[in-house]
């Protein structure tokens, strides 16, 4: 199978879906040039009408996505960094996330907001936050967070074909990562987790960059005789509770790893669900490994310390296994 970068996989997904469906178009700041290169080259093929560079006006662009989706188009809105979603927040929370319901089912909103989420560029707080929990908390918004080139392509294609608003969070630190990506058409359905490493002693649940941290932790744990099962959620909402619960019923221990801050973070949601649904199966209390409750610092040393480390995951899993 050909090996491609995560960014190249994004580009392929966009190009394929734009070829397939004339209603799909791309809109955002500098999407022609492609700030993260995921949209690069598309303007040459699809032209001004379908690859639209906008002024720096996130709120208007996000809202224009809503209006276009409500009237028959399928916009992909590129807002660059996850933190810039904050400027679009009103349109996503009050319109995209509610319109269909609020108006009694009169419309669908096939709409994708695509950004780069998380740390990895040492650019300080305004470019490095993990914003996904805010959107997980909005009832009608789907939230996707791929960890591999294969998944980013398949999930993005599925998100574009989905009739609901999707916040699609590529990880800032994964853009250059290479992996197998077939040339043939495929989709990765939203809402399905993947077991990245089977194991019998403890379930580690993560998404995005944290999947890679969890896999490294699992290797270290294996050297100690602990076999961790690593689950990559891939979609944060709706999330694959069944896969996680099945794994926990087998391993009977659960560690939730997420880059965002602990209060109301993604890990809290997973941990609460496991505690609620699989309490009787657990041999140890569930554990969360979250980002630290601080703004993201610039210094690379501090930035690294602000998100979960491989060592912290190892400690949490080990702690579960000694109970």
């Amino acid at each position: 199978m050909p090996r491609k970068t995560y960014i190249a996989a994004i580009r392929e997904a966009l190009a394929e879906e734009m070829r397939r469906d004339a209603r799909v178009f791309l809109i955002g700041e500098d999407v022609r040039i492609g700030v993260f290169a995921g949209t690069r080259g598309l303007h040459a093929e699809f032209g001004d009408r379908r690859v639209i560079d906008t002024p720096i006006s996130e709120l208007a662009v996000a809202g224009a996505g809503v209006g276009a989706a409500a009237t028959g188009l399928r916009p992909v809105v590129d807002l660059m960094f996850g933190t810039f979603l904050y400027l679009a927040f009103d349109q996503i929370a009050n319109q995209a996330g509610a319109m269909r319901y609020m108006f009694g089912g009169q419309t669908t909103l096939p709409l994708v907001y695509m950004v780069q989420n998380g740390t990895g560029s040492s650019a300080g707080h305004h470019h490095s936050q993990s914003v996904h929990p805010f959107f997980m908390n909005m009832p009608l918004i789907k939230v996707v967070m791929p960890s591999t080139p294969y998944d980013v392509k398949g999930l993005l294609k599925a998100a574009i074909r989905d009739d609901n608003p999707v916040v699609f969070l590529n990880h800032l630190a994964l853009g250059g990562q290479r992996g197998e990506v077939p040339d043939e058409e495929y989709l990765v359905p939203l809402g399905e987790a993947a077991i990245r490493r089977p194991g019998s002693d403890v379930t580690i649940c993560a998404a995005g960059l944290m999947v890679h941290h969890a896999l490294k932790a699992a290797q270290l744990l294996a050297a100690e005789g602990v076999e961790a099962e690593v689950i990559d959620l891939r979609t944060l909402k709706p999330w694959d509770e069944a896969a996680v619960l099945a794994s926990v019923r087998k391993t009977r221990r659960f560690v939730a790893v997420d880059e965002s801050a602990p209060v109301c973070g993604a890990a809290s949601e997973w941990a609460a669900t496991v505690a609620e649904q699989a309490f009787a199966d657990l041999k140890a209390p569930v554990r969360r490994v979250s980002g630290k409750p601080v703004p993201i610092p610039f210094s690379p040393v501090l930035e690294k310390a602000a998100i979960p480390s491989v060592a912290e995951i190892v400690v949490a899993a080990r702690h579960c296994c000694t109970q």
Partner: peptide, 10 residues
């Protein structure tokens, strides 16, 4: 200026 927490943009 910001104890290393801000960087060029802050």
């Amino acid at each position: 200026y910001c104890k290393g927490k801000g960087g060029s943009m802050h």
